[in-house]
């Protein structure tokens, strides 16, 4: 009886994480805020649901396997979120007016300036095409 109650609470918690992600995906305005909503069922929702399975089964032998499942998701989801977020920043799939602070902007500016200074000696050798290619290529490499 107590097991059923605990399992029910954990399951409903995990399901509400999924629902929160769905509502967040529907309502949030741009890619980065949607990514914020999307991580809830991937990590916390899966944790709650796997905990429900562990309580329901009630066997200690199962715990390492469930932890392995969760750990695998925990290792892979930040990497894919990083890739998606970086590509979103590069391809400008974000609404800048919604940002309070863009810490990456300064870094990109500095990297572009650095790269331009590094390319100046090479450009002085007489390769005009290389200099013209410079800003676009360095911006792409820096971001």
């Amino acid at each position: 009886m107590l097991t059923d109650v605990i399992v029910s609470i954990l399951l409903i918690g995990g399901a509400f994480m999924s629902l929160a992600a769905g509502i967040g995906l529907l309502r949030f305005p741009d890619l980065l805020s949607r990514m914020h909503a999307a991580t809830k069922p991937q990590v916390l929702g899966l944790l709650l649901v796997l905990a429900a399975l562990a309580v329901e089964t009630g066997s200690w032998l199962l715990l390492p396997v469930l932890f392995l499942c969760w750990l695998f998701q925990l290792l892979t989801s930040p990497v894919s979120a990083l890739m998606v977020g970086r590509t979103g920043y590069r391809t400008r799939h974000l609404r800048r007016e919604l940002l309070t602070l863009d810490e990456l902007d300064d870094v990109v500016e500095r990297a572009i300036v650095d790269q331009a200074e590094r390319q100046r000696p090479a450009g002085a050798d007489g390769a005009d095409a290389g200099v013209q290619d410079g800003p676009g290529g360095s911006a792409g490499a820096a971001r």
């Binding site: 995906l25 649901v49 399975l53 799939h93």
Partner: peptide, 28 residues
Amino acid sequence: SILDRALALDVVLAIISAALVLTMIVNH
């Protein structure tokens, strides 16, 4: 954008795994 779609399908996969755990709990 296609990134929104990839993100949404990631969420769909997470929900599918939650549903798989639910079937495991129901069917023991």
